[in-house]
Amino acid sequence: MDAPLTPAPGRSGAGKSGGRGRAARERGVSGRAPLALLVPAVLGLAFLVLPLAGLLVRAPWPTLLRRLAEPYVLEALRLSLVCATLATAVCLVLGVPLAWLLARVAFPGRRVVRALVTVPLVLPPVVGGVALLLVLGRRGLLGQWLESAFGVTLPFTTAGVVVAEAFVAMPFLVISVEGALRGADRRYEEAAATLGASRWTVFRRVTLPLIAPGVAAGAVLCWARALGEFGATITFAGNFPGTTRTMPLAVYLALETEPEAAIVLSLVLLAVSVAILAGLRDRWVSAS
């Protein structure tokens, strides 16, 4: 996605703020990184990585393979990946339009709405789960109606896991996409309008492709958050093998009796998510 380093003079708008200036900056600033930045940076990295090292050191390596082969591990892993991916899809479908609304439409109370979007970030996930039960549960405000009208109940189902994960992960997507929308050059949208594009066409054919990197970044954050989701899931969707017991739930339960199994499960979750995220990143870079 990076701009080429040989920009033609006066290229189209993207070039105005893109390639040339940045290339010059990258070349212009050099020399050693200041210690005032380097030291906290290394400490920060250590802070993030050491707990992982702790897991690796304490992992029961001799029994690792045997433990991995247990069917419940794969079952929980599969469920985690499926649910996190579906939750990300839900967040994309609902979150991108919400971000658009926040970034592009001036309406009264917009600041309040924006603050509300962050509620799942600050709400303890367990409380989020209870709140979901109160709304979508069997006796909940909407849940009652869902059950009587459609015979649908969400708690204790895989769909419930997706709902809980989407609830908790959505802010990450909305915030990323809104930021991308605010950073995008709106004049392209005006240009599209003068060419006869309706607002929907503008969004679909101009805005969305322009903010694609931001949407992708948001989707990744969203997916990662959904993958690790625990509190809202166990509260709203319950904990049953095969339908709602995702990896984090399996880890928590294993901690009750068998801390070593919990470490193995955590490592599996980490390894898979890191592998997928690293793979995605490479693909974007090479796609440019």
């Binding site: 990076d2 893109g18 930021g179 903010i211 931001g214 440019s288």
Partner: peptide, 8 residues
């Protein structure tokens, strides 16, 4: 452009 965007 990805760097710039993810930066923002």
């Amino acid at each position: 452009m990805s760097n710039a965007v993810s930066g923002s």
